[in-house]
Amino acid sequence: MLEARGLSKSFGRARALDGVSVEIAPGEVVAVTGPSGAGKSTLLHCLAGVLRPESGEVVLDGRRIDTLGEAELTALRRQSFGIVFQFGELVPELSAVENVALPLLFNRHGRGEAMAAAAEWLERLEVADCADQRIGELSGGQRQRVAVARALVTGPRVVFADEPTGALDTLGGEQVMTAMLGAARAGGAAVVLVTHDNRVAAYADREITLRDGAVLAGVNP
């Protein structure tokens, strides 16, 4: 469904990715692990169409996406991908429910419809009580659930999560992981999960380990 072939990407003289190929099947949960600087986040951003690789290609459902124009790529990201960051990256001026509604509003849904769908997602992630609160009033765990709701509200094919539990304690992280994977499975979305925490990686169906910008051979089941 989503495939990367021979991706390479450098930042200045530092080579972040060096010919990485991976394939993500529909509905699959894949952890991308490896030490700091191994290229985990760069791979995630290339797959998600946030960064463009220097060489190699990214293919979604048979269609090459790394060569799309900026407008087309943005539209594709909004429709097919959801992203959860380590610190939520929510809009502090908006309430929780407005944050979740935002991707639908960008996709030109009506306000009433978007707000109703957003409220439903908050309910599913058990943070309905926080709907009208500003982001600053929420706990770390609540923020991440709102971020998960925002990533899933458009019914994406793939959810990308970059250290989604990095700012949470063990139990808070466990609750966010369970909520995120439950919601993704229910919607049939694949999840690509970047983490340096093995306990988080253990939620995945399989693991891709990067070392020095390349896939470590012999570790994938």
Binding site: R199, A202, Y203, D205, G218, P221
Partner: peptide, 20 residues
Amino acid sequence: LVRQREAHLARMRELTAEKA
């Protein structure tokens, strides 16, 4: 070590699934 790491992770996946 790389093979041991994989075996450990496989067991961690099983335990995580059991917890559900």
